[in-house]
Design a protein around this nucleic acid. Structure first.
Lengths: 257, 257
DNA sequence: AAGTGGTCTAGACCACCGT
DNA sequence: CGGTGGTCTAGACCACTTG
């Protein structure tokens, strides 16, 4: 059983302020508090959080108010509800969210499962550009890795991945090769870094010789360049990716609501 | 004031069925009913729908139940809530959702507003491929238009747009040129066709001579190919687009939740 | 002041999952 | 069976917009 070090007084009722410049409803204060609990690691990925009734008691509010807080967090993929079982902390170490951020799908047929082959992994000093994207100082340590993603046996994506070094102490090519899980699953389990959301910027570019060779296309062929910035709690960037996608027999699928 | 031709008996309480194979909660039945009202045009884009209290009275349920139905519809961009004013039927004829489906943004600076230049508009018989995507029969009439999208004065997107002819009687190049609104806004106002959601499939391709010339790039340059299928109520496809995006100074931005 | 959506409560009961 | 999330109610009050 988890303990939530919370005094009822920490959650303040929304007293009627005259103009109310920073009004925040109760359920949002509760949500913020719960996010802090996730961030602090009090509730770990895969764990069940306390029941709604239990939380309502701790916060001294009604179940409906707790429920609304959880609803929003579930909508943001921070929690997963399972009727009859409980509410769980989302995890990348779970088939359901294994490909949560991968939008590439085969043109036809179902997706043959993909495999990741790490090629290089080096510790470097952040260039000004990388530092800017990752919100660190130029010269700070970053991990730079190159890896090839295959669908079946076909090479489809060549990724260059930049990680905030401070958070990934001891990461080496050997450890990457030894892992049989997805990168994000490993980051979560081995380094306690949870990828929450991401932004991708897409462009079409011509393949250089190196990429063309690895992806099995002609030099100068059109490739899809996908630049991804990935964030953890508090909108803190922790990863930057440049991915070259071969879209001969695959495409990037996006749903517009 | 709008009239909802509904008998209370139409919304049935969820009687406890033994196994309950097709159990549908009250709020979902109400939501389905309201979607039918939208589909039937009883509530028109931009209109305010009846207040929550009013609807609760009509359906003979509590306000909270109506509220949950509206919540889901607002999350799906079918309705827009505005505190203190009411709940409105979403419309493309509104600056807020003008660019709802356009993910292309300039690399730097804010977005200079885009302008659309229709180039051609023809009535053809659907090819087997287009018919399949649009869910019609090969040979059925389709409208095919070519148009150039500019950001500021710079040509950035060359679109080929296929529309289900049956729904767009009388559409001509002249009417397109005469309109000063977005395509979807015009489709909604002039043809009663509401675009609800879309799927986009992205690939990188080499520019042909025609596209290169219009977009001001070299023949063979890498372009982003965006194929969009757009759906109206009931997941009925009504539009298929092939867009060639020049990503020299713009990129396709996608948020991954 | 009146009307709208937004929050919160206390309680009841249902659907689902495990033991 | 007990525990969990899911639905629904009736009512109170708050925040925002408009007249």
């Amino acid at each position: 059983m988890l303990k939530l070090e919370v005094m009822n007084s920490e959650i303040s009722r929304p007293v009627s302020r005259s103009p109310s410049p920073t009004f925040s409803p109760l359920y949002r204060q509760i949500k913020d508090f719960m996010i802090k609990s996730l961030e602090a690691g009090e509730w770990r990925p895969g764990d069940a959080i306390p029941s709604e009734a239990e939380l309502a008691g701790r916060f001294n509010v009604s179940q409906g108010t707790v429920r609304k807080a959880i609803d929003e967090m579930a909508a943001e993929n921070l929690l997963v509800r399972r009727q009859g079982k409980g509410t769980f902390v989302a995890t990348h170490n779970d088939p359901r969210s294994y490909y949560r951020f991968l939008r590439l799908v085969p043109d036809d047929g179902d997706q043959a499962h993909s495999t990741s082959e790490p090629l290089t992994c080096d510790w470097l000093e952040a260039s000004p550009e990388v530092a800017r994207v990752l919100g660190i100082q130029a010269g700070d340590p970053v991990v730079v890795m190159e890896r090839l993603l295959r669908f079946g046996s076909e090479p489809v994506v060549l990724d260059y991945i930049y990680l905030v070094g401070e958070l990934f102490q001891g990461l080496t090519l050997e450890r990457l090769k030894a892992s049989d899980r997805s990168l994000y699953s490993m980051f979560e389990s081995d380094y306690g870094v949870r990828m929450i959301r991401a932004e991708e910027r897409l462009r079409a570019v011509a393949a250089d010789a190196h990429s063309a060779s690895l992806l099995g296309v002609e030099d100068g062929a059109a490739l899809l360049l996908v630049e991804r910035t990935t964030f953890t709690y508090g909108n803190k960037p922790v990863e930057w990716r440049r991915g070259l996608y071969c879209t001969r027999r695959h495409h990037y699928l996006n749903e517009l609501g």
